[in-house]
Simulated assay, not measured.
Amino acid sequence: MPYTSFKDFYPYYLGEHQNRTCRRLHFVGSALVLLLLLAALLRGQAALLWLLPVIGYGFAWVGHFFFEKNRPATFKHPLYSLMGDWVMFWQMLRGQIRF
């Protein structure tokens, strides 16, 4: 289904993340991305930035393929999916979504 706004997409995105372990893996991957980004900036090691998508998507895709048993939304909606990752991360961090 084509989405014309992130507001329309996000309920679909949340529906693709009903499995608690999948959400936890997303959260861990996103947290590690932030820590790695900070480490790369503080140490001046730009080469570490190449690991960001590996860590971020790696944890998320394990969650989808092995626990949620669905195909990540990234494959069809890459930008909205990336935005959804971070909105969901902050909502979990604030306790708005259970993880």
Score class of each variant (00 low, 15 high):
residue 99 F to I: 11
residue 60 A to I: 05
residue 15 G to A: 10
residue 80 Y to W: 12
residue 49 L to R: 07
residue 65 F to H: 11
residue 83 M to A: 11
residue 38 L to S: 12
residue 41 L to K: 15
residue 48 L to G: 03
residue 34 L to Y: 07
residue 15 G to S: 12
residue 13 Y to W: 06
residue 28 V to S: 04
residue 44 G to R: 15
residue 84 G to L: 01
residue 11 P to R: 14
residue 6 F to K: 13
residue 61 W to Y: 13
residue 47 A to M: 14
residue 32 L to M: 13
residue 43 R to D: 11
residue 91 Q to M: 12
residue 85 D to N: 08
residue 85 D to H: 09
residue 18 Q to G: 08
residue 20 R to E: 13
residue 39 A to N: 05
residue 43 R to P: 00
residue 73 A to N: 13
residue 65 F to Y: 14
residue 89 F to G: 02
residue 26 H to A: 04
residue 42 L to T: 08
residue 6 F to E: 09
residue 60 A to C: 09
residue 44 G to I: 08
residue 5 S to M: 07
residue 30 S to R: 02
residue 18 Q to N: 08
residue 92 M to H: 07
residue 16 E to F: 00
residue 13 Y to G: 04
residue 93 L to I: 01
residue 78 P to T: 05
residue 12 Y to L: 10
residue 87 V to D: 07
residue 19 N to M: 05
residue 99 F to R: 03
residue 60 A to F: 01
residue 72 P to N: 15
residue 98 R to D: 14
residue 13 Y to D: 02
residue 1 M to N: 09
residue 82 L to A: 14
residue 93 L to F: 13
residue 16 E to A: 06
residue 94 R to S: 13
residue 14 L to W: 02
residue 23 R to A: 03
residue 68 E to C: 11
residue 65 F to W: 13
residue 31 A to N: 04
residue 53 P to S: 09
residue 99 F to Q: 04
residue 17 H to W: 00
residue 92 M to L: 07
residue 10 Y to N: 09
residue 72 P to I: 09
residue 83 M to I: 06
residue 69 K to C: 08
residue 49 L to S: 11
residue 15 G to Y: 05
residue 9 F to H: 07
residue 61 W to R: 07
residue 96 Q to P: 01
residue 3 Y to V: 13
residue 35 L to D: 02
residue 59 F to N: 07
residue 16 E to P: 00
residue 24 R to T: 03
residue 32 L to V: 04
residue 65 F to G: 05
residue 85 D to W: 04
residue 98 R to N: 11
residue 24 R to S: 02
residue 54 V to G: 02
residue 68 E to M: 13
residue 8 D to L: 06
residue 66 F to G: 07
residue 51 L to W: 04
residue 11 P to A: 08
residue 36 L to Q: 12
residue 76 K to V: 00
residue 80 Y to E: 13
residue 72 P to T: 12
residue 52 L to Q: 05
residue 67 F to W: 15
residue 67 F to S: 07
residue 28 V to C: 07
residue 88 M to D: 04
residue 88 M to W: 02
residue 64 H to R: 10
residue 16 E to D: 12
residue 20 R to Q: 13
residue 59 F to E: 05
residue 86 W to K: 10
residue 28 V to G: 02
residue 80 Y to T: 01
residue 37 L to N: 09
residue 47 A to L: 15
residue 68 E to D: 14
residue 14 L to H: 03
residue 49 L to C: 14
residue 99 F to D: 06
residue 19 N to W: 00
residue 7 K to H: 06
residue 69 K to V: 04
residue 81 S to N: 12
residue 58 G to C: 10
residue 8 D to Q: 15
residue 69 K to G: 06
residue 97 I to P: 08
residue 82 L to P: 00
residue 98 R to A: 14
residue 4 T to H: 14
residue 4 T to Y: 12
residue 50 W to P: 00
residue 92 M to Y: 03
residue 92 M to Q: 14
residue 82 L to F: 14
residue 73 A to G: 13
residue 89 F to E: 05
residue 18 Q to M: 09
residue 64 H to F: 04
residue 11 P to T: 03
residue 12 Y to N: 05
residue 79 L to N: 03
residue 19 N to G: 01
residue 86 W to M: 10
residue 8 D to I: 00
residue 83 M to K: 13
residue 10 Y to R: 11
residue 19 N to Y: 00
residue 75 F to Y: 15
residue 79 L to C: 02
residue 25 L to M: 12
residue 54 V to W: 01
residue 71 R to A: 10
residue 33 V to H: 00
